[in-house]
Design a protein around this nucleic acid. Structure first.
Lengths: 108, 108
DNA sequence: CAAGTGTGCTACATAATAGGTAGCGATAAA
DNA sequence: TTTATCGCTACCTATTATGTAGCACACTTG
């Protein structure tokens, strides 16, 4: 199971250029990656708590995503479970406007 | 090939709640979806032009993504090829800060 | 007209990823 | 000792992505 975590500066699943934005898109363009970051907005969650928050995503996938997100320094594991790192919170800040916008878009 | 385009208000691949943000994350959390929107930033591209811009993504995938993005009113087809719609440009505007941020993140 | 070129795709086969279920080993409380 | 929760791992199946080939159409070019 060679699950590769996309890293800026080297080729990855979709991108051979290694451009940071492409590595980011590759990393976040996987099932539940965006959702996990989103669900951690209000503070740390345990593995099973996060699983519940993500509508019962399978532990297999959840664990894969968490591994990738940890290798990418977006998520870390603390005493209270999984939490966003500084980088993760920055990213979340950039994603938040999407929440509002998606509400408008949904009404189209 | 029952490829389902996630729509707000109804359950989709990852999300059973139908929350707009989850439908959006599902739609954009597929390979090359983010990249396609990104590459259309500077104007319309032909199918093959877009394929080249996305580092040779297979026509199979490109066509699936375009179909989904068109059904979601983010991309449309005009005389000059594929282009972002008004919604698409709005979304791109929200994504743009990620470009700058990813550069910083890459240096970590 | 014929031949070549570019375009938007579709078909098909294979590889990679996601999803679902069962359950293990550890920890802690009753 | 039982019971319960937690963080996972194993295993299998279903879905999605990737890669290559090539068709049908339109448009030049000679």
């Amino acid at each position: 199971m060679p699950t590769i975590t996309p890293k800026p500066g080297q080729p990855v699943r979709g991108s051979k250029t290694g451009k940071p934005i492409m590595a980011l898109f590759d990393l976040m363009g996987r099932s539940w990656a965006l959702g996990i970051v989103w669900q951690l907005a209000d503070g740390p969650l345990t593995f099973r708590g996060l699983q519940a928050a993500c509508e019962g995503v399978s532990p297999t996938v959840l664990n894969r995503r968490l591994k990738e997100l940890r290798e990418s320094d977006l998520v870390e594991r603390g005493d209270d479970g999984y939490a966003l790192t500084g980088w993760g919170r920055e990213l979340l800040g950039l994603l938040k406007p999407l929440g509002k916008w998606s509400g408008q878009w949904a009404k189209r």
